[in-house]
Computed example of a mutant assay.
Amino acid sequence: MPAPLTIRGRTFNWGSRTYLMGVLNVTPDSFSDGGSFNTLAAAVAQAQELADAGADIIDVGGQSTRPGALEVSVEEEIERVVPVVRELRKAAGSTALNEVPISVDTARSQVAQAAVAAGADIINDISGGTFDPQMLPVVAQLGVPVMLMHIRGNPQTMQKLTNYQDLIGEISEFLTQRIDAAIAAGIKRSRIIIDPGIGFAKNYAQNLEILRQLPVFQSLGCPLLVGPSRKSFIGHILDQPEPKARVWGTAAACCAAVAGAADILRVHDVREMRDVCRVADAIYRK
């Protein structure tokens, strides 16, 4: 079992229960809620809602990573993310936000640096530190935990790169290499969290296979983050094109992830998934 991790006074005891990361997209074009929270007031209100609903982490993202999403400039991403992080830390006071760690969903070291300076606690890098060669050294210097996800290509090309000879083996090999690179850069293993990247360079069948095979990733010795929330494979099963209408399909995927020993679930619908996790934890965790 990975060693416990304490962030902003909150200790994550891996294996004891499932933790929830609430999604806060401050973008105009994210696949599910783009444009809903891209004003400062709306973002703070949504963060408060996520905290009140039981989010253990709030994940702020200023660059859409949906398939085909266009890349914004570093300056634009910082302009979207940093004021929100700063305002959340100002607004926290004695509210439920006060002790909630903030992660920033970015693959750029400059954004990571600016966000942590504004009060962010974790870097969530969909590229596993591969898009920006400075990311891992910067995270090591900042002394914050990092989440490393598996991907092929980038959001513009990834859905054309789903031809695997050994899906689980290749994801495991990539994550092993990224763990080693992070440690070589000076990041402690206890501060590394891994993510197999559901929906990122994976097709419908491969996403299901990842959920079936989640226990394999325990051998890598790091906490496991899984992000199935509202994704297209759920829409495919339910014949549901509207992401926000995939809540209960997401609940089923989350239950499967808990059964597979996921440590953190990245979700939009925190209140509903909190109930799902409480019941699933009672069944599957000893």
Rank of each mutant, 00 (worst) to 15 (best):
R8T: 05
R10M: 01
R17E: 01
T18Y: 03
T18M: 07
Y19K: 08
M21C: 09
M21P: 01
V23A: 00
V23W: 03
L24F: 03
N25D: 05
D29I: 00
S30V: 02
S30D: 05
S36Y: 13
N38Q: 13
L40P: 05
L40T: 00
A41K: 15
A41F: 15
A43P: 02
A43T: 01
A45N: 08
A51M: 06
A51T: 00
A53F: 01
A55H: 00
I57N: 08
I57K: 12
V60L: 15
V60T: 11
G61T: 03
S64P: 11
T65R: 09
T65A: 10
A69P: 09
A69W: 05
E71C: 04
V72T: 04
V74G: 01
E76V: 13
E79Q: 14
R80D: 09
V81H: 13
V81M: 14
V82C: 15
K90H: 15
A91T: 08
G93A: 13
L97I: 10
N98P: 00
E99R: 13
V100S: 14
V104Y: 09
A107F: 14
R108Y: 10
Q110P: 12
V111Q: 04
V111P: 13
A114P: 15
V116P: 11
V116C: 09
I122Q: 05
I123P: 13
D125N: 11
I126Q: 05
G129C: 09
T130Y: 04
F131Q: 12
M135D: 03
V138E: 15
A140D: 08
Q141C: 05
G143A: 10
I151A: 01
R152V: 12
P155S: 04
P155V: 10
T157P: 00
M158N: 12
Q159R: 05
K160F: 06
L161K: 12
L161H: 06
T162F: 04
T162W: 04
N163W: 14
Y164T: 05
G169F: 07
S172W: 07
F174I: 02
R178D: 05
D180E: 15
A181F: 13
A182W: 04
A184D: 15
I192Y: 06
I192Q: 05
I193R: 02
G197I: 02
A201P: 00
K202W: 11
K202D: 01
K202N: 02
A205V: 10
Q206A: 07
L208G: 04
E209S: 12
I210H: 06
I210K: 05
Q213F: 02
V216K: 13
R230F: 12
S232K: 14
F233V: 01
D239T: 04
E242R: 11
K244V: 06
R246C: 07
A251D: 07
A253M: 11
A253R: 03
C254I: 02
A257W: 01
V258Y: 07
A259P: 15
A259G: 11
G260W: 11
A261L: 12
A261H: 15
I264Q: 08
V270E: 11
R271H: 07
E272I: 06
R274S: 03
C277V: 07
V279C: 03
A280F: 00
A280G: 03
D281W: 00
A282K: 10
K286H: 14
